[in-house]
């Protein structure tokens, strides 16, 4: 379970966030400049909140009162940014094994290859990231992040760099994977179509979570113009009226 109750000021933006994920997928939606990516950086430990507390499965990652601030590399949070950030000087296998440094080489390769195969990228191991399509890059970035068996997954605009066909395919794949893994996942997106990925949607406006709930709950009582617009553009789930 990932819990964050934090306050931070980053440039002109003032964030006050109260959010928790328990084995579910939460979509953080919001207009540009609402603080979505900043929220991810605060959770990851790249930025430091001014006040509050972040905990993951009961372990405190950050606590302004006690001064606890676990470094990024020890937080066990997987992160896939919008551009996937594959290391361009390593091949796919080099990327996928990067996070498995403490293991011996044979075990690193075995585990990385298993994840690449699971995500349908098993035939790409010796390819350079520059030779991959957007969809392949995303699969490799996910395999690299998940090979470390993280406690939660943070995705920043996971489909923004893809063409419409790859976007539809990967959104469907990711929906299936997230259901299968039951890994707490926080997905930041401004695309209403990504609402189908999530168990719950948290709407962020000007640094604050202004409304959260299931797509259906938001549909019944949209709390702001942005939410109303989001709901209108979101796909109607199967079985709904």
């Amino acid at each position: 379970m990932l819990e964050a109750r934090i306050a931070a000021r980053v440039g002109p933006l003032e964030l006050r966030i109260d959010l928790s994920l328990d084995g579910e997928t939460v979509l953080v939606a919001g207009p540009n400049g609402s603080g979505k990516s900043t929220l991810l950086r605060l959770l990851l430990g790249v930025l430091r909140p001014e006040a509050g507390r972040i905990a993951l499965d009961g372990a405190v990652l950050f606590d302004a009162e006690t001064g606890i601030d676990v470094p990024v590399e020890e937080r066990e949070l997987a992160y896939v940014p919008q551009d996937y950030a594959l290391f361009p000087h390593m091949d796919v296998l080099g990327n996928a094994t990067f996070g498995l440094a403490p293991l011996d080489r044979r075990e690193r390769v075995r585990r990385a290859t298993a994840w690449l195969e699971r995500l349908g990228a098993g035939d790409l191991v010796h390819r350079s990231p520059s030779a991959l399509s957007g969809g392949e890059r995303q699969r490799v970035a996910l395999a690299r992040a998940l090979a470390r068996t993280p406690r939660a997954l943070l995705l920043d605009e996971p489909f923004a760099s893809l063409d419409p066909i790859a976007r539809r395919q990967l959104r469907a794949s990711l929906t299936g994977w997230l259901r299968e893994w039951r890994l707490p996942a926080l997905i930041v997106s401004h695309d209403p179509a990504d609402a189908m990925l999530a168990d719950r949607i948290a709407v962020l406006e000007r640094g604050r979570v202004v409304q959260q709930g299931t797509l259906e709950e938001l549909r019944r009582a949209p709390g702001s113009d942005f939410v109303a617009g989001l709901i209108e553009a979101a796909p109607v789930p199967a079985g709904a009226d």
Binding site: E73, L77, P81, D83, F87, G99, P102, A145
Partner: peptide, 15 residues
């Protein structure tokens, strides 16, 4: 050097 690459490296356990 793209800062995202360094952030991702850190999340992958790199000091």
């Amino acid at each position: 050097v793209d800062e995202n690459l360094l952030v991702v490296a850190r999340t992958l356990g790199a000091s």
